[in-house]
Lab assay of single mutants.
Amino acid sequence: KRLSEREFDPDIHCGVIDLDTKKPCTRSLTCKTHSLTQRRAVQGRRKRFDVLLAEHKNKTR
């Protein structure tokens, strides 16, 4: 699936709103397109961004 077609989940996706499409970014939490500050500011996550990021990195090892 293309990035734009993915169902957005704030707990596994970057989530920064794309200015062109007005939709949240569906790249992983480790997205290189958006800064850490931008990704931390995303609302609606179950846990703090840093906790989710650490969990994500542990899963992908």
Rank of each mutant, 00 (worst) to 15 (best):
K57F: 10
G15P: 00
S4G: 12
F49N: 03
R46F: 05
L36R: 04
E5C: 09
T21H: 13
K57S: 08
P10W: 07
R27V: 07
N58G: 14
R27P: 00
E55Q: 06
Q43T: 14
A54S: 13
R2L: 12
T26I: 14
L52W: 03
R39Q: 11
D11L: 06
A54M: 12
Q43S: 13
Q38R: 05
E5I: 08
L53A: 04
R45E: 02
D9T: 06
K23D: 04
L19F: 09
N58C: 09
P24F: 08
R39A: 02
P10D: 01
L29D: 01
A41E: 13
L53I: 07
H56L: 13
R40P: 01
G15N: 02
G44R: 04
R45S: 06
F8L: 06
E55T: 05
L3T: 11
V42C: 02
D9K: 07
V51L: 09
L36P: 05
G15L: 03
A41S: 11
D50N: 04
D20S: 14
R6Y: 07
R6P: 15
G44I: 02
H13E: 04
S28T: 09
E55H: 03
K47M: 11
T30I: 12
R48I: 05
P24G: 06
L53Q: 01
R2Y: 15
P24I: 08
K57L: 15
D9Q: 14
D20P: 07
L36E: 12
A41P: 01
T60Q: 12
H13Y: 06
R48C: 12
I12D: 09
H13A: 04
D18I: 13
D50P: 02
K57D: 15
K59E: 15
T21L: 09
V42E: 02
K59D: 11
R6I: 13
T26R: 10
V51K: 12
H34T: 00
P10Y: 08
T21G: 08
L53P: 01
G44M: 03
P10C: 06
C25Q: 00
R39V: 02
N58E: 15
K32V: 10
C25G: 01
K23G: 10
K22Q: 07
D11Q: 14
H56V: 11
D18T: 13
Q38Y: 02
N58F: 05
D9A: 05
S28D: 09
H56N: 09
A54V: 08
T21A: 07
K57I: 15
T33W: 10
C14L: 00
A54P: 03
F49P: 03
F49T: 03
L29W: 02
R48P: 14
I17F: 03
R2E: 15
T33L: 10
R40G: 06
E7L: 09
R61M: 15
D50A: 04
R6C: 07
L36D: 12
Q38F: 04
D11Y: 04
G44E: 04
L29E: 00
L52I: 01
C14Q: 00
T30D: 12
L3Q: 11
R45W: 01
T33P: 02
D20N: 06
H13T: 03
R6W: 11
L19N: 12
L29G: 01
F49E: 03
R48S: 15
D9Y: 07
C31E: 00
T30E: 13
T33Q: 12
V16L: 01
K32L: 10
H34K: 00
R46P: 03
N58A: 14
H34Y: 00
F49K: 04
S4F: 06
T60R: 04
E55L: 04
K22H: 10
V51C: 07
G44P: 04
R39K: 13
P24D: 01
H13W: 02
V42G: 01
D11A: 06
D18H: 09
L53K: 02
L52V: 04
K22W: 07
K32I: 10
S28A: 11
E7M: 15
D18N: 09
D20V: 09
S35H: 06
H34I: 00
L19G: 13
S35F: 01
S4C: 08
K59V: 15
S28V: 09
R40Y: 04
A54Y: 08
D50G: 03
H34G: 00
D20T: 10
V16C: 07
Q43E: 13
T37F: 14
I12R: 14
K32R: 09
E55I: 04
T26G: 08
Q43F: 05
D9V: 06
D9W: 04
H13G: 01
K47N: 11
L19C: 13
G15C: 05
P10G: 07
C25T: 01
T30K: 10
G44F: 03
D20F: 06
L19E: 12
G15S: 06
T30A: 09
R40Q: 10
T33H: 10
T60A: 11
K22E: 12
T33S: 13
R27L: 13
K57R: 14
L53R: 02
T30F: 08
L3P: 07
V42N: 01
H34M: 00
T60P: 14
D20M: 11
H56P: 03
C31W: 00
R39N: 01
E5G: 09
K59M: 13
V51Y: 06
H56M: 08
D20L: 06
D50R: 01
K32C: 12
F49G: 03
L3G: 12
L53N: 02
F49S: 03
R39S: 01
C14R: 01
T60G: 15
D9I: 09
F49W: 04
H34N: 01
L3A: 10
L29T: 02
P24E: 09
K32A: 10
R27G: 14
T33E: 14
R45M: 01
R46H: 04
C25Y: 00
E55V: 04
V51N: 07
V51G: 05
A54W: 09
L36W: 07
R45C: 01
V42F: 02
L3K: 06
P10S: 11
R45P: 02
E55M: 05
R2M: 15
S4Q: 14
R2P: 07
R40H: 04
S4R: 04
R61K: 14
G44K: 02
I17V: 12
I17E: 12
K57T: 07
F49R: 02
K22Y: 11
E7I: 07
E55R: 04
R45Q: 03
K32W: 04
K23R: 13
I17S: 06
V16T: 06
C25R: 00
H34D: 00
K32H: 11
